[in-house]
């Protein structure tokens, strides 16, 4: 009835080796779909992403009866979908990195200040956070596009606007509990000022959360950017942003499904892998945060 002692150890996770220590599959997919294409788009894309070629319009992918000339088919103007998707990775990655970088810094700073100083700082900040949660990002993007036209910077602005409040709220929550910990009291007894307490004592202890949260936001941002571009209020045409590529195929879903499907798959794989990686990172970093 009772399992032999040796049988218990098998579930301990040791024997899984490399695969359990690093999420190899998501990392590989991210490298192939997102990172390598972003940096080496000009080297690996078989065609110019902007080059139209009317005779070759709506060629199917090679696995659906097409030719190796256009392995993943062409769109309405005869542009190579593979090349456009490869170049699209650049925009997905740069918008996520820049947007998340700015959103994280802004949100973390605000969250630190609100959680640490509490009082009216906190009350004002949290009301602003509530408002920004309530305001639909699409509406904001529409207003921006109407006022200034759609642009790369506009998308970044929307991304930062959406992200900072998440970070601010999460960081504030952690800071509220961290500031009650005895090591903060000890630092105050030692004579540490606000700056030292915030940056040497509290910030290092919220960094793990911030990193995990930032990673998990990559997926959110890619979807957001794609949605904005799909609606025509994101990155302007003819840039091959993934959302625009999907939108291009919208009218052709029945006749030429590959036009939307291929960039759609790129979005799906990227977001899924980023989230898997983020989950792994959270499991990895979080327990140490609450170590005891």
């Amino acid at each position: 009835m009772p399992p032999p002692a040796g049988g218990v150890a098998r579930g301990s996770g040791r024997s899984f080796g490399l695969a359990s220590r690093y999420p190899l599959v998501p990392i590989t997919i991210l490298m192939i779909v997102l990172v390598i294409p972003s940096f080496f788009a000009d080297l690996i894309a078989p065609h110019d992403p902007y080059a139209a070629s009317v005779p070759n319009r709506l060629e199917p992918p090679v696995f659906a009866g097409g030719t190796w000339e256009f392995p993943l088919g062409t769109d309405r103007l005869g542009r190579d979908i593979l090349s456009r998707t490869i170049h699209g990775a650049k925009y997905a990655l740069s918008i996520s990195l820049v947007g998340i970088f700015l959103g994280t810094i802004l949100g973390t700073a605000v969250g630190l200040a609100a959680g640490y100083f509490r009082g009216w700082t906190d009350r004002i900040v949290m009301r602003v956070v509530d408002v920004s949660f309530a305001l639909p990002s699409i509406l904001l993007a529409l207003a921006l596009a109407a006022a200034f036209g759609s642009s790369f910077e506009g998308v970044i602005f929307v991304v930062v606007f959406v992200l900072w409040s998440y970070f601010a709220r999460q960081v504030r929550g952690e800071v509220l509990s961290l500031r009650e910990r005895d090591f903060v009291a000890r630092a105050r007894v030692a004579g540490a000022g606000h700056g030292r307490i915030i940056f040497r004592h509290i910030l290092p202890n919220v960094m793990n959360t911030v990193i995990v949260l930032a990673t998990l936001q990559i997926g959110v941002v890619i979807i957001l950017e794609a949605s904005l571009s799909f609606l025509g209020i994101g990155i302007p045409r003819p840039t091959p942003a993934w959302g625009l590529l999907v939108a291009d195929g919208r009218a052709l879903v029945v006749s030429a499904w590959w036009v939307s499907l291929i960039p759609g798959l790129a979005i799906l794989l990227t977001v899924l892998s980023v989230n898997l990686f983020g989950d792994w990172l959270r499991d990895r970093l979080d327990p140490k945060l609450r170590q005891r």
Partner: peptide, 9 residues
């Protein structure tokens, strides 16, 4: 009673 951890049982 035994307990399994990352370091063994």
């Amino acid at each position: 009673t035994v307990i399994a951890t990352q370091r063994g049982t």
